[in-house]
Write a protein that binds this DNA or RNA. Structure first.
Lengths: 335, 335
DNA sequence: CTGAAAGCGCTTACAG
DNA sequence: CTGAAAGCGCTTACAG
């Protein structure tokens, strides 16, 4: 079933069929009618490969994320997919699995598939491989995680400010021994969140105890382990800023397993505000990522670049502010 | 940067270049070497559109899911992506958003993009549109939700058995007033789970109270609302089988908001065993979907069909057994 | 207002 | 052991 069959059936040239499909030059009502009918009759679907090959436009964009089973990435992917679909594009989703090798392989695949643009949430340690993309000349938008390149637009949130907000909230509740569970140290978001935590403590003239800062990996399991570790300290912290919600869930579990009561015995604030943050018990106080807004900005920048000349080389950088969402995992210190 | 450039650079025919790329006929070491080097030097990447157009093989498969921000779908998509990637394929992910129109539009896109196969988790009410796929002759694997067609392999779990397991567990704990929060009534999984619930009650000679069966939609919010409704009944149930984990989280929230204690005042068991099920407080007793195994079966059936002749028309049907995972949201009735 | 034809970048018989 | 050439299904100058 090709354009040739349709042309034959409608007794017109394939040129004309192409033009009615794409609405790209005037075609008389009569012919248009015949073509339409032929397409219906034959159940014709244009072959996007042929179209893409010829026109250079594939209407496909690639999305590279570290792990789409991580709710934060799942939600932002979802939001991006929705916008992109409404623009008539489709998404090839690539799980890098936080593995630079897999990520590199996917870059190759995306380029080979001639995607028109790439949205890229980096693994921790992939600085090495992005040149491949830079040389391709294809528009790239980096999201969530910084990568050292001048050749892409960037959409980030102000993680330092988020960490500051979270910690300040705990301070304002009267907590003094405030710990922090950090994310993987290679990621800029982790480091920035911890920096915000430090700044808040400093501004409040509270000491920063090194043993109160423990490393995690943004996953549930290490969140639980880190919290168990903190609870074993003497004195144990009376509040903790956990740098993402997944780990915060691990913390809740750890706290319960020690028969402590949240938030009475210890307050925690998370980061991300994934959908399930409000479903934990108690509901998680957390720093909300502006997921929807991020998705909008990311796609806006990408489509701008798709439409503009490559000569327009000024790179854009958007930094969105996160917000504190107070729920029930924090309360004033019982003195 | 095309195969032609490589051929010129290496001073061989494009035929030869093609054969070294695809390893598809003998090429002398000498030429092979020169071609390899040329490809490296020029940073050549084969154009998959051209390859796909010519060979009819796109190495792409489509995955249609109702909502990838739903953790169950996110996890199964993740598992599928991983397997498919290792086979050298890529995935186009399509969120139908539980919207038959969008789903239909995506079918068109996938066919136009010449995917080699489709994995399809249906929206509730899309029976109408699958013919489009059937006629295409492209291999389809249906997963999770039944759809009336003879023209696809199917991978399901035994939802009736899952509902039975869950309810039996509650019965064995001594509960008598056991309620059920169902999923959307159009979906076969929902109905089957409720059927299992009924069967367990019947076999135990326990009455089935119609007011104890309330409808949900598999989302958090309605789970919460449904549980609030159940808690207002007099007498209120002492246990409830919630037909997915998302809604079970809503239930936990509702229970806490009424200052009741889980599981002391009421036991609940969920369905799915999403990653966060173990992170709720208390950890959720639930019926585990064999997510990894489903992904394996789904891809196994699909690749079998990709490799076999279309004449091999015998359709396969795989039904996997879910398992009860006992955690802390259920306990024996305090008589 | 419409059509014939070149060509996008590959693969793959066919030929030697 | 290697290459010249046809053709996959489209789009798009070019021509009239």
């Amino acid at each position: 079933m090709t354009i040739r069959d349709v042309a034959k059936f409608a007794d017109v040239s394939i040129t004309t069929v192409s033009h009615v499909i794409n609405n790209t030059r005037f075609v008389s009502e009569d012919l248009k009618e015949r073509v339409m009918q032929a397409m219906n009759e034959l159940g014709y679907k244009p072959n996007m490969l042929a179209r893409g090959l010829r026109s250079g436009r594939t209407r496909t964009i690639g999305l590279v994320v570290p792990d789409m089973a991580n709710l934060f990435f799942a939600e932002i992917s979802r939001a991006i997919e929705d916008i992109v679909f409404n623009k008539g594009y489709s998404l090839i989703i690539c799980n890098s699995d936080d593995n630079p090798e897999k990520q590199k392989a996917y870059f190759g695949v995306l380029l080979a598939k001639q995607v028109e643009g790439i949205i890229f949430i980096s693994t921790g340690s992939s600085q090495d491989y992005i040149e491949q993309l830079e040389n391709s000349g294809i528009p790239i938008v980096l999201a969530d995680r910084e990568v050292p390149t001048q050749l892409a637009d960037v959409v980030l949130i102000d993680n330092e400010y988020g960490g500051y907000l979270a910690t300040n909230h705990l301070i304002s509740l009267g907590h003094k021994r405030i710990a922090c569970i950090a994310g993987p140290s290679e990621l800029t978001p982790s480091a920035d969140r911890v920096n915000g935590y430090r700044r808040a403590l400093c501004e409040a003239d509270l000491p920063v105890y090194p043993e109160y800062i423990v490393n995690g990996d943004f996953h549930f399991k290490l969140g639980e382990a880190a919290m168990l570790h903190l609870l074993d300290l003497n004195p144990r912290p009376d509040a903790v800023f956990v740098s993402n919600d997944m780990m915060a869930f691990g913390c809740i579990r750890a706290i319960h397993s020690r028969n402590l009561v949240l938030p009475n015995d210890i307050s925690i604030v998370g980061f991300d505000d994934i959908l399930l943050a409000k479903a934990s018990s108690p509901a998680l106080t957390t720093i909300a990522q502006p997921t929807q807004k991020m998705a909008e900005k990311i796609t806006e920048l990408l489509f701008l670049r798709l439409e503009s000349h490559p000569s327009n080389t000024k790179r854009k950088r958007v930094i969105l502010k996160p917000e504190l969402v107070i729920r029930d995992s924090t309360m004033a210190r019982s003195s």
